[in-house]
Design a protein around this nucleic acid. Structure first.
Lengths: 221, 221
DNA sequence: ACCTGAACACCGTTCAAGT
DNA sequence: ACCTGAACACCGTTCAAGT
């Protein structure tokens, strides 16, 4: 009995943790309290192990974040793609956007460096192919994708971005933001601005914006 | 002699530091070693004072960063504005962009929260006015500015963004980036992608991109 | 009023040792 | 092979005390 014993390579202490378990614990924290709450020590605590045990499964904290991003990317839905290539590009871009908007910590991680999830490569390829099907050259498609992606990152940053939530640890609820920095005298422009920002957070302006950008690109060639 | 003595309010120890001095020291650090090197303790060290002395001149580290951003914004050049409103909007957007691109730490600070520099409000107003002069309604101008700003933030993030520079403290030069994450097998798409990214970093694609976006907006109405 | 010293409650990570 | 304990070199910030 006990055929769970592998005949091969049975040396040393059996593992108690795994990369998958570490990622699970990390994800729970980030989902609950945001990316700034993600510390190696808290992950270890969640696993009931010492902080240093994690380093056997993950190179360092940066790698942990990238792996978390990749995991999210792998879970992105693959929508039924339209026959119209323009529509197809917009569909995939929307999947990217919605994935980032649903997990506000993504913006912060994207901001941190050249980190990128390999699992999105097929989706990027889909967008490039769609642009080519619209009549662009591969180089044009690349530049077009870059423009769309940069707008999407900015949107995630500005609208759904790493706001420090409420988070107020009891002290100092105010924030030196655009609102109180002009010491009380709210300019008309400012009031309007705030309105437009709020609009973007409530209404779905992304669809309109990205469609406008894509149409600009298609009109260009 | 010594007419530097103010007749008014002469109580307690005279100040040795000032908010301006704190900002100078902070700026030097951030310019030299990037925003991640900016710590209260290092600023204090640069001033030859104790870390806690800073808290008399600045509420906390967040405020320090916002003040630094505002200082940079105040120094932005005010270009000779064109008579053509479309051109005018593009000019001011370019000033924003170039300011951020020249100081790569800006992207990181913008990413961190709703922080905003009050000194840019007149320039924002300039852009809104230009869009209105192009025939947009105020609401359309607001949405248009938002779209442009979001693209600009994304561009700063992706192209000039908070890459962790070389920074390698001797150990681990590699980075789990898109390049090595697909374990060696570089897809054609991937090679292309990297090329487009590099292109954006060397050539000035921003001018073309933002003009395309603005033209898309103007065509929309 | 302005600054200092010591302390608190954290970080990520290394290194030698246990099993 | 995998994990632990103690330690290192940091953080931001509070609080009581000095001048």
């Amino acid at each position: 009995m006990a055929d769970t014993s592998q005949p091969q390579s049975r040396v040393g202490r059996p593992p108690r943790l795994s990369r998958e378990a570490v990622l699970d614990a990390a994800e729970e924290i980030v989902e609950l309290d945001g990316p700034e709450a993600l510390t190696m020590r808290r992950v270890a605590e969640g696993l009931g192990s010492s902080p240093m045990a994690l380093y056997r499964h993950v190179r360092d904290k940066d790698e942990l974040l990238v792996l978390l991003l990749d995991r999210l990317a792998r879970r992105l839905p693959r929508p039924e793609l339209s026959a119209d290539p323009r529509q197809r590009a917009l569909q995939v871009l929307r999947v990217f956007h919605d994935g980032g908007a649903a997990n506000p910590w993504v913006a912060g991680v994207l901001a941190a460096g050249d980190a990128m999830a390999p699992s999105v490569l097929p989706m990027i390829e889909e967008i490039l192919a769609a642009f080519v099907a619209c009549g662009m050259s591969p180089a044009q498609a690349g530049a077009a994708y870059r423009r769309c992606w940069q707008f999407t990152v900015g949107e995630l940053m500005v609208v759904h971005g790493g706001r420090r939530h409420v988070q107020s640890l009891g002290r100092r609820p105010v924030q030196l933001s655009i609102l109180d920095a002009v010491d009380g005298t709210v300019m008309p422009t400012l009031a309007q601005l705030v309105g437009y920002w709020e609009a973007a957070r409530s209404q779905d302006t992304y669809a309109q914006d990205i469609a406008g950008i894509v149409d600009g690109l298609l009109a260009g060639r």
